[in-house]
Computed example of a mutant assay.
Amino acid sequence: MARPLASVQLYTLAEQFSADMAGSLDRLAGLGLRNVEAFDFVRRPAEIRAALDSSGLAAPTGHAPLLSDELWTPDGSIPTPAPEVVFDAAAEIGMTTVIDPFVAPERWRTLEGVTDIAERLNTLADTAAGFGLTVGYHNHAQEFVASFDDQSAYERFVALTDPRVALELDLFWALTGGQDVVSLVERLGERLVAVHVKDGVTPATNPWEPGAPAFASSSLDQRHAGTADVPLADALRAATSLKYAVIEYDHAPGDVFDDIAASLAFLTDGGFVR
C-alpha cells in the first residue's frame, strides 16, 4: 500500500470558498490538512496563491478542463481558456499536475471518441512539460458505459495514453459505473497517482447511461468516508503508487467542514495517509 498525502478538492466547499477564500483555507489548515486540490483557479491564480501561502497550504493538483471549452458540473458550467493559459495559472499557484475532471459522455461511447481523448491528452502532456507540469484525468461514471472487446472505454483510454498522463480515480463514481473498484485500482497500478476519497449510497442507475434522467449534486446520498457503499479501505490498500488521497463530496451531507473532518479522520485513523 502506498501512503499518500491527504488533500481535499475545493469543489467540496465551493460556496464557502467563494464567500471567504482565506477563512475557508484557514479552517482546512486548522483541521490538519496541508494540501488542497484547486478548482476554478484559472481566473484568479494570484489571489489563490496568496491565500494558500497565508494558510500554509499547497495545491499540488488542480482541476481544469483541457479537452473541452468549459468545465461541466451538475450545478453549472465554468468556461476555461486555452490550455496554455490554464498551465500558466497552474504554475503560478505552484501545482505539479493539472487534471481534466470531465469529458462529455457522448465522447466516451465510440472507440474513435476515446482514441481522440487519449491522443489529445498525450499532446497536452508535451505542452504541459514546457510549464514544468504534468496532466491527468479524473473520471465520473460515463467512462464505464461503453466497452470495446470486453474492455471498458476508461481502460481503453488508459491503454492509449502516454504513461506521463496521470490517473486520478474517483472511487465513488467508478463504483457507480459498475466497476469492481479494488480490482480496477490493482489493474491501474503505477499509473494511479491520486484517488478521490468519496463515499455514499451509489445511485440505482448510472446517471450517464443513455436515456438516464438528468441529475443534480443535491440528489446524491453521499456520506462520510468509510460509512457507506464504497470499499475505500480496500481500494487504498490495493494502491501501489498513490501520491494524493483527495477528500471530496459532490453533495456534503451536513456542515461541510465537519464532513471533511470526518473523512480526514477515516484516512488518518486508518493509517491510510502520511
Rank of each mutant, 00 (worst) to 15 (best):
A19M: 04
L25Y: 09
L31C: 06
A118S: 12
A235N: 09
R237H: 08
Q151I: 15
A166M: 01
E186A: 15
A252Y: 05
Q179V: 12
I48Q: 12
P210K: 07
E84M: 03
D40M: 00
L10F: 06
A82E: 15
F17P: 00
A262R: 14
A22T: 15
A128L: 04
R43Q: 08
G226T: 07
E168P: 03
L264N: 03
Y244C: 00
Q9S: 12
S217W: 09
A46Q: 13
R120L: 00
F272L: 12
A174C: 10
E209I: 01
R44W: 03
T80L: 06
H196I: 11
F131L: 04
Y154G: 02
H63P: 01
E15Y: 06
D40S: 12
R237T: 09
G23Y: 07
D221R: 12
E84A: 15
I99Y: 03
R191V: 04
Y11K: 12
S263Y: 05
E155T: 14
S219F: 05
V193G: 14
R223T: 13
M1Y: 02
E119I: 00
L31Q: 14
H138P: 09
T123N: 06
L232M: 06
A90G: 11
L52F: 04
P213C: 02
L242T: 08
D269T: 03
A58K: 13
G32F: 00
P163I: 07
D250I: 02
P4A: 15
A128P: 02
F157P: 05
D126S: 14
P203Y: 08
H196G: 11
H251E: 12
V103W: 05
G76I: 06
G94F: 07
D26L: 13
L160F: 12
L28E: 11
G271L: 08
E15W: 00
V197H: 06
A38R: 04
L5Y: 11
S18T: 08
D221V: 15
I260C: 08
H196S: 12
E119R: 14
A204V: 14
A235H: 02
I117L: 10
D100C: 13
L236F: 10
Q16Y: 01
L67H: 06
G270E: 07
S18K: 13
A118M: 07
F131R: 09
G30P: 07
T110Q: 09
V201M: 01
R120Q: 15
P74T: 08
F144T: 14
V103Q: 12
A129M: 02
V273Y: 11
V135Q: 08
N122T: 11
F144S: 13
A58C: 02
A238Y: 03
A238W: 01
A214L: 11
D250S: 04
A262C: 05
Y154R: 01
G177E: 08
T227D: 00
P79K: 11
K243V: 04
T73Y: 07
E168K: 00
G113V: 05
E37W: 03
P253K: 01
L242K: 11
T176H: 06
A22F: 00
I260D: 11
I78L: 15
G30S: 09
P163Q: 12
A64L: 08
E248V: 04
A91C: 02
S218Y: 10
D170E: 11
S54D: 13
W208F: 15
V185T: 09
G189R: 04
D180Y: 01
E209W: 00
P60T: 03
S218V: 13
A58I: 00
